[in-house]
Amino acid sequence: MKILAIALCLLLGGALVFVVGDFPDWGDPMSPPNDYRLSKHFIENTMEETSVPNIVTAVLADYRGFDTMFETAVIFTAALACFFLLRTWGRRPSKPDNVYMHLLTGVHVRLKHGKTLSPQSRTFARVESEILRYDLVTSTVCRLMIPFIQLFALYVVAHGHHSPGGGFQGGVILGASFLLLAISHDLRTLRERFPEVKLMYLLIAGIVLYSGVGFACMIYGGNFLEYEALGPLMGVTPVMAHSLGILFVEIGVAMTVMATMILIYNYISSLGTYERGL
């Protein structure tokens, strides 16, 4: 069996190495994708036409912005599919028990009929259940890191047309920061900050923002997603309007991607109840 596996690996690896020989050289200006006149047009004229230094973002959100809008719609549909497949509605008690942990000894206290302790208490911390542990190291470090992660995510979104980055990447980082909160504390902490309804609004608002920019272009006399038409509205030159339009569109993408990430994680980790996570 092992010999068979090694033979298979060698065969597949050999095939891959064999194919690599046919690739154009790395960064070869004369290779077919670089030599085609469309790519030449992008490389030579992107800066003049859109004032966006990052050609990849310009192509993604401007030259073929229509395509990216439906990519965002695919992500939106994925979130909706997860909602319909995974979400379950069980009967929930009107006054659920609250579980607290004494921080020094680790003893759990269960308060019945929805009674609570003071949230400012330094000796007791509210936990989701008796099985869950409240780990001081993890939660403190995550509390320290999450703001920086979110700041970096916003930077990635807002700087996507100048350096590598953009809506998809920034949205994933932003979503991951909230997942870190859910993992390091518990799902209840995340749910209090981001109820399901708000996430749904965010999910829809992202795609509405994207297509809304497109329709705004039509209202101002351009084609769908032709950002030049928005120049007079934003008070900038038509070339600069391309850059700003890309920024708006990227923000919409980031909102949808972030909400999708958080929703899918929450449904899977709470078995669809959205009540109690891992």
Binding site: R133, D135, V137, T138, V141, C142, L144, M145, S184
Partner: peptide, 12 residues
């Protein structure tokens, strides 16, 4: 900050 506390969390 992150690497040792991630290890801590996995050990935990």
């Amino acid at each position: 900050m992150a690497s040792p506390s991630a290890t801590h969390a996995i050990v935990d």
